[in-house]
Design a protein around this nucleic acid. Structure first.
Length: 782
DNA sequence: AATAACTTTCTTTTT
DNA sequence: GAAAGTTATT
């Protein structure tokens, strides 16, 4: 469980400089560039660092150096990291470097967790009480779903997720609901514009903030209350931001505001490792740092301490394919190392088996313990086959990500109950549990309550408070009253009894536990245990420190990720995780799996040059996790979408330096570089044209013409070769087509089956369109 | 209102 | 193949 770091303003709470280590001891053992970065104490500093160059280490030592020289008191230091785990490790190391006393009081954590704490203290200025709920995307979608119903928006036509995405991007770009209304350019944006103001209204009435708000509200606070900004500018004299390439616009703005007075801002990042654009991360933040801060000192950390020469050579050749980069020349003193091994498998099962065998071999022959291995994949769904193989071979593994602990249904249900006690106006939580376990309060009743609340200007909870004034009567009314009392009664007890006991009682009386018991399955048993674990964590939290209560627990828990939770780093197991989750980690042996077109890069990403570059950076990140052994794997067929689909190896394998790669037979890799030609300098946002693309490259079956496995002497492989229906005149991705109205264009992708089959076509004169094949009457050219 | 049985859609990646 | 949404049944 995350510790709550004290947020101290008091200089006296920091220790005296006595007992501090010699500053020299802190830079000892660092290379020249690192020393430069550590000792450049004031003014804006940009550290451009390659993978494995010790960037986090450098940042850590810099903070230690600030403390050891007496230049900074701990409470004046702010360090923002990408995960809470990274913050914890950094805290650990600083403590080790300067001693626990001297390290006490540093503010450290992710942007989200640090500013959630600030909002607890300062949020009242914006109309929030300190017990505000933090909504994850699940909660946001719950709110949006009910709003879509209210505005009669067809959820089939416009998905909740898409709407949330639009609203989230709007918030990230700091576009207000009012302004958004004027910028509408498509039907779905129109719906988003309709819902956006109501969504914001619901959130603020619920005394709740979503993830975006945790960054936006501080900005609003600083803008509206200059004295508060000044207070924090004075407090945090030294700002540090790790993984700067993954900051979004709001984070950039916060940093700029806080650093405006003293300009002691030190950021570390690697533009080549920017992999979170989909979440609003803006690579421009790091690219333009020197422009924003004219006097910025730029320091490059180019020596790699992690990987062998061959692995690094492969990494370099990957990233060379991308444009727009800060110049870096990576090099290493490490040995040349082994060849990178490319393994081809028949299926995802076969792939998993090869991985499993390789692990066993390296373990027995080279004595690598299990913890030395990491298996990386593009999508969480891929973990399954690998898990199966490892389990069969009795190889212990730990899975990071996937369905994380705190996003499990039973945990979210339990959390919703607990949230209602501290923040009853939280509408998402109320809706979540008002009828779970079922107690006779159906959708109709809830909607009636919502309507009543809106008419009176009440929150949903206030509607329960004034139930007698509503039209609701009879059995439904009785159930609602009982629920209302249940929450109130327990909330009142929070003042006098330990929170974990009250929580346990509430869940018991709400019938959550008996719901599990009734099921009598292994799964329901596991769910029960999970909730117990949550309650234990709560008990631990409450006992850990003064000021820790249910409300702080709930806020912190929402911001935890799976990686933060796993404290079993010492356990000897193989690690399974997505490429994204692997950022910042290193392993002696790494498998980058699923190197197939359509999966890595994903089919969608392959259509947009910017997304394709991000996928390539992701490949780069994966490859640079490896210290000694690197394996790339791909499968010829993969079970996806409930069916076997055949796939071709990733284009990434055809654009890299093959001199460091060997296949299983020990031969060099034969490249087919002509499979894809694309304009090397496609301007951002424009669609790539695939001239000379092999029309059979994608083999998504269309037209429902999938033949059975038997008969006609067809091999397994042939089954999935049906790429078009006779009637559709060979419409496959890559071919040029003509449309009566739109003229000439190129097919980018196909989806759907039979009459529902649709093609995404890029028309030269009309841009990208999605057409139903049945009606489009596309004519194939050439 | 609640359950069971059916159908549809869908998968990126996550603070 | 799973999750979410829909329909039918009590």
């Amino acid at each position: 469980m995350m510790r709550q770091f004290a947020l101290s303003f008091d200089p006296e709470s920091s220790s005296s400089p006595a007992g501090l280590p010699e500053p020299e001891s802190i830079v000892a053992g660092l290379n020249e560039a690192q020393q430069q970065a550590v000792t450049a104490l004031e003014g804006p500093v940009l550290i451009v660092a390659g993978p494995g160059s010790g960037k986090t280490r450098t940042l850590t030592h810099r903070i230690a150096y600030l403390l050891a020289t007496g230049r900074a008191k701990p409470y004046q230091v702010l360090a923002l990291t990408f995960t809470n785990k990274a913050a914890r490790e950094m805290q650990e190391r600083i403590r080790h470097l300067v001693g626990p006393q001297a390290a006490r009081g540093i503010t450290m954590g992710t942007f989200h967790s640090v500013f959630a704490r600030i909002l607890r203290i300062e949020g009242e200025a914006l109309g929030y009480s300190r017990d505000f709920s933090i909504y994850d995307s699940d909660d946001s979608e719950r709110i949006l779903r009910s709003l879509m119903e209210r505005f009669r928006i067809d959820s089939k036509q416009f998905s909740v997720r898409a709407l949330r995405g639009l609203i989230s991007s709007a918030k990230n770009a700091m576009v207000s609901p009012h302004d958004y209304g004027r910028m509408v350019a498509s039907p779905i944006q129109e719906k988003a514009a309709l819902v956006y103001p109501a969504y914001e209204e619901t959130l603020s009435r619920s005394n709740a903030m979503d993830f975006d708000d945790l960054l936006l509200k501080p900005i609003a606070l600083f803008q509206g209350h200059p004295e508060v900004l000044k207070k924090y500018q004075q407090k945090w004299q030294f700002l540090h931001i790790d993984e700067y390439q993954d900051t979004n616009h709001a984070q950039y703005t916060i940093a700029k505001m806080l650093a405006a007075a003293h300009r002691n801002l030190c950021v570390v990042g690697d533009d080549a490792q920017s992999i979170y654009a989909f979440r609003g991360a803006d690579i421009a933040n790091i690219l333009s740092f020197q422009r924003d801060y004219k006097d910025a000192k730029t320091i490059r950390l180019e020596q790699n301490y992690r990987s062998t020469q061959k692995i690094l050579a492969l990494a370099e050749s990957i990233i060379k394919q991308n444009r727009d980069q800060l110049e870096k020349h990576l090099w290493t003193d490490n040995t040349e190392g082994n060849f990178v091994l490319l393994m081809e498998a028949l299926s995802e099962k076969d792939e998993a088996q090869k991985i499993e065998r390789t692990i066993r071999e390296l373990q027995t022959r080279a004595g690598h313990p299990y913890r030395d291995f990491a298996v990386l994949y593009r999508t969480n769904a891929q973990s399954r086959s690998i898990e199966d193989a490892l389990r069969r071979a009795s190889i212990p593994y730990r899975l990071i990500g996937g369905v994380s602990f705190y996003s499990r249904k039973e945990i979210k249900d339990a959390l919703a109950y607990l949230r209602l006690m501290v923040n009853p106006h939280d509408a998402a939580s109320l809706r979540r549990v008002i009828n779970y376990p079922t107690r006779g309060i159906g959708d109709k009743t809830v909607e009636m309550l919502a309507l009543f609340a809106r008419e009176r200007g009440y929150t949903l909870w206030q509607a329960l408070d004034h139930l007698d004034e509503s039209e609701l009567a009879g059995r439904a009314s009785g159930s609602v009253q009982k629920f209302h009392f249940l929450i109130n009664q327990h909330a009142a007890q929070l003042a006098t009894r330990p929170a974990d006991e009250v929580a346990r009682d509430l869940l018991q009386e709400a019938g959550l536990f008996s719901a599990f018991k009734q099921e009598q399955t292994l799964e329901s048993q596991a769910r029960w245990e999970n909730v117990q674990e949550l309650l234990n964590a709560l008990a631990e939290h409450v006992q850990a420190a003064e000021g820790n209560d249910l409300s702080t627990f709930l806020q912190e828990v929402t911001l935890l990720t799976d990686a933060d939770r796993a404290d079993d780093g010492e356990v000897n197991r193989v690690t399974l995780m997505t490429l994204h989750a692997s950022k910042g980690l290193e392993f002696p042996a790494v498998f980058v799996t699923g190197m197939e077109e359509g999966l890595f890069p994903l089919a969608k990403a392959a259509q947009d040059p910017r997304e394709l570059e991000e996928e390539r950076r992701l490949f780069y990140v994966g490859v640079t996790r490896a210290q000694e052994h690197l394996f790339l794997t791909h499968a010829r067929t993969r079970f996806r979408y409930g069916q076997h689909e055949s796939s071709l190896r990733s284009r990434f394998l055809d654009e890299v330096d093959t001199s460091v790669i060997r296949t299983e037979s020990g031969r060099a890799l034969e490249q087919k570089s002509d499979r894809f030609t694309m304009q090397p300098a496609a301007p951002a946002g424009r669609t790539i044209t695939y001239d000379g693309v092999d029309p059979h490259y994608y083999r998504t079956p269309v037209g429902g013409a999938r033949k059975g496995g038997s008969g006609r002497g067809g091999r397994d492989d042939d089954d999935n070769r049906v790429v078009y229906d006779e009637g559709e005149a060979q419409i496959v991705p890559g071919v040029a087509v003509e449309h009566q109205q739109f003229g000439r264009g190129k097919v980018l992708a196909l989806e759907g089956r039979g009459d529902m089959a649709k093609a995404t076509v890029f028309f030269h004169d009309h841009g990208q369109k999605k057409l139903v094949l049945k009606f489009a009457r596309l004519r194939r050219l050439g």
